[in-house]
């Protein structure tokens, strides 16, 4: 029972003091951030900011050598099975098997989480229902549009009932309607299931006023707070302008580090 209590208390994701380098190049430099349960946290950064590296560490493609990453309180290094079983991921690149049907893709994923066939089938149809694709279950993934594939991937990430949903630039390459539909879907998940969401993006218009935002630039966290904090930091009402201003600031020497402390949420 205490375990469950601990899980409920713990944020969906806590990253603290993580530094990661590939050779001489530091991809992440002392990164700390939190994605609470029941909330939408946007991870905002330009391409190459370190978002994908951070996702790779959270999903344990490779291990963080410094700092700590915990999913619902489970350290990914100490308790990888528990952490991963609480985690749903939508990767930036397409990860569906185009040759297989929608349902077959979901059943495969369910098996990877140890969910037996009949239960897997029930869950698969339920999650497809949620994303409005139940009618396409038997179709080959190849026949779906880009937006539909993304929704299938979201459905798949939900199959094992995760407490944290990671999405790495999920709307890249989608038309505006599909983007909107996916954002709405994810926000509905937060409301319905109380799931914690970390949404990596470089598109500021995907962020709403109530969302938490973490700005990552060149491997460092520039800001963690509300969207208003970003506006204040960038000195502009327009979020995009504010973001670019905040990023530009770091190009001046010796400013990023001092700013970081007073912008923490």
């Amino acid at each position: 029972m205490s375990e469950i209590a601990a899980e409920t208390r713990a944020p969906a994701l806590r990253v603290s003091g993580v530094t990661h380098a590939f050779g001489a190049k530091k991809a992440l430099d002392d990164v700390s951030l939190t994605a609470p349960s029941g909330a939408f946290t946007a991870l905002l950064g330009l391409n190459g900011a370190g978002k994908t590296t951070l996702f790779s560490l959270i999903t344990r493609l490779y291990e963080n050598r410094s700092g700590a990453i915990a999913v619902l309180g489970h350290d990914v290094r100490q308790q990888p099975s528990r952490a991963l079983s609480r985690l749903g991921v939508v990767f930036q690149s397409r990860t569906l098997d185009l040759e297989l049907s929608v349902l077959q893709n979901l059943l495969y994923h369910a098996a990877l989480h140890g969910i037996g066939r009949s239960e897997a089938r029930r869950r698969s149809l339920a999650v497809l229902e949620r994303v409005g694709l139940a009618a396409r279950a038997k179709e080959k993934v190849r026949a779906l549009s880009g937006g539909q594939m993304r929704r299938v991937e979201i459905a798949r990430a939900l199959l094992h009932g995760p407490g944290l949903l990671l999405l790495d630039e999920p709307t890249v390459g989608l038309d505006i309607g599909s983007r909107r539909a996916i954002l709405d879907e994810v926000r509905r998940l937060i409301d319905d299931d109380g799931i914690g969401v970390l949404w990596a993006t470089h598109l500021v218009d995907e962020i709403e006023a109530a969302d938490r935002v973490v700005v990552l630039h060149k491997g460092r966290v520039l800001l963690e707070g509300r969207i208003d904090d970003l506006r204040a930091r960038g000195g502009s009402e327009d979020v995009g302008t504010a973001f670019m201003a905040a990023v530009a600031e770091t190009e001046r020497p010796n400013t990023a580090a001092e700013r970081k402390t007073d912008t923490a949420a």
């Binding site: 029972m1 375990e3 469950i4 899980e7 409920t8 079983s85 989480h113 299931d193 109380g194 799931i195």
Partner: peptide, 25 residues
């Protein structure tokens, strides 16, 4: 992993987390 589902909020019964990483699993 622990067996019990995580009660994060009023989640629908369809989305209980996988219960077990057992031998059968």
């Amino acid at each position: 992993v622990d067996r019990a589902p995580v009660a994060l909020s009023e989640r629908s019964p369809d989305f209980l987390p996988a219960r077990d990483v057992s031998f059968g699993g």
